[in-house]
Structures are given as C-alpha cells and as structure tokens.
C-alpha cells in the first residue's frame, strides 16, 4: 500500500534521512521506533508531503507522491497526526472534527463518520461543544486522532500518540489504536514506547540516525541496542 524507496531528506544543509526504504501493506499496523532525533517525525513528514525528499520515491496505492502537494495527499487517503496532537485550540471539539472531514469525499459522509468517532472516543461526544484548548492532554490526543479519522484515511499515521499520557491512559490509547486498526484502517505508528507498540504491531522498523537499522516482529526487535535503550528509557540521555 505504502512504499518508501531510498529516501534522502534534508533540513537545509543537514541530512536527516539516509536512504530510507520500507513498506506498509493494507490492513497492517506497522510501528516505526527509534531514539530521539532518529528521523521518525521526518519520515512521516516526507510521507504526508510536508517535507519533500531530495531523492527517492514515496508511492501510495501505486501512485507516486513526490510531486503531490500535502493537501492533495490527504485526499488520497493518507492522514498524519502531528506530534503532541496539535488540535485547533480556539475552536470547539466539534469544529475540530468537522475540519477533519474537510476533503470532499469525507465531507459527504461526515455525520456517519462522526458517529463512529464518538463511539471510539465517547469522551469527545461529551465535550463536543467545549473549546479544544480546555481539553486535557489525553483528550487532545484523542481529538487529534478522531479528527484524522474524520478524513476517512486508508492509512493513518500517528506520531507518538502516547507521549505525555498517564500510564493508565497509555494502555487505553494503545487499545484504541489497535481497535482502529482492527476496524480496517491501516496504521503507521511512530512510538518511543517500544514495548507497547511492538505488542500491538504486526511488524516494526527500527530507525537510528536517519537510517533503517532493523526490521522484524515482536521479540525479534528487542535484541537491537537502540531498541533496548529506548525501551529502557535512556534514550533521553
């Protein structure tokens, strides 16, 4: 479904990604893990078109995305949830969700999708008229994911959805992600919480210093140095 082929990406003169290649198949839940500054967010930005690669190709359902502007890529069914949620704080929860359904095909079925999102995140239904700026961190993260679901994505990309959440909420969050995947949305999950993401993911890639250094499933991955350090939480050092 999604395929990255030898992607090289730069921030000005600084190379952030070095020949990244990987793929995500329809229906899968794939995790992309690695320490801080490894290039996880950058990879997602490349896929969603916020950043254009210097070389290499991104293909989605057989279509090359390299020249597509970011807002067109959303229409193709790819939606990225930014690090930290980034909800529109000045607008109500409902308005945020409505904006999620901005693309034409999603707008037509807006009300059905909304019902569905409220089922996954009942909390959002309770607070639909509340200003998003007044939500708690966990609620914002839910809103950001719900908003992305409103665009009816075929592939949902999540950037550290568990970051900053209380431990109980973290478990809930991973369950919800798993649930979303089970209901048919392909998920690319970027996480530092390696244990939990590997538990729910079908496969995982390990990224380090802008390069993919490992690939596999479950326990297999825990043998990697970087994975262990991230898992043990000393990646912040």
């Amino acid at each position: 479904m999604l395929k990255l082929d030898t992607i090289n990406a730069f921030y000005a003169d600084l190379q952030a990604l070095w020949g990244i290649s990987f793929e995500v198949n329809a229906g899968e839940l794939v995790a992309l893990v690695g320490p801080n500054g490894a290039g996880k967010t950058t990879t997602l930005r490349i896929i969603s078109g916020l950043l254009k690669p210097q070389s290499g190709t991104v293909t989605f359902d057989g279509k090359t995305l390299n020249t597509e502007p970011a807002h067109k890529i959303v229409e193709l069914g790819l939606c990225q949830v930014l690090e930290g949620g980034k909800v529109f704080t000045g607008m109500s929860v409902l308005e945020n969700l409505e904006l999620g359904a901005f693309v034409p095909q999603a707008r037509q079925v807006k009300n059905q999708t909304l019902k569905h999102v409220y089922e996954i995140f009942p909390r959002l239904a309770e607070r639909k008229n509340q200003r998003a700026g007044t939500l708690s961190g966990g609620e914002r993260q839910m809103l950001a994911i719900g908003r992305a679901l409103m665009s009816k994505p075929k592939l949902l990309m999540l950037d550290e959805p568990s970051f900053g959440l209380a431990p109980i909420l973290v478990d809930q969050m991973f369950q919800m992600i798993n649930e979303i995947n089970k209901q048919g949305t392909t998920v690319l999950l970027v996480e530092q919480n390696v244990r939990a993401s590997i538990d729910i993911a079908h496969r995982a890639y390990v990224i380090e210093n802008g390069r993919i250094v490992g690939h596999g499933s479950g326990e297999q991955l825990l043998s990697f140095e970087s994975v262990r350090s991230a898992y043990l939480g000393d990646s912040h050092a």
């Binding site: 969603s48 916020l50 502007p69 970011a70 807002h71 067109k72 959303v74 229409e75 939606c79 990225q80 949830v81 930014l82 980034k86 909800v87 529109f88 704080t89 000045g90 607008m91 308005e95 409505e98 904006l99 999620g100 901005f102 693309v103 999603a106 707008r107 908003r147 992305a148 665009s151």
Partner: peptide, 23 residues
C-alpha cells in the same frame, strides 16, 4: 467550512494542511 479552514490555518498551518486544506 471555508471560514473554519481560515481559522484553522491561523492556528496551525501544518495541522490545517494535514486536514487537506490548501493553504
């Protein structure tokens, strides 16, 4: 909808772009 897209862009143009809004 267009008005809301405008307000969304004011708040965070990257997030708005990821909603499919052509900034």
């Amino acid at each position: 909808y267009t008005g809301k897209a405008l307000r969304a862009t004011v708040e965070n143009w990257e997030a708005a772009t990821l909603m499919g809004i052509d900034i």
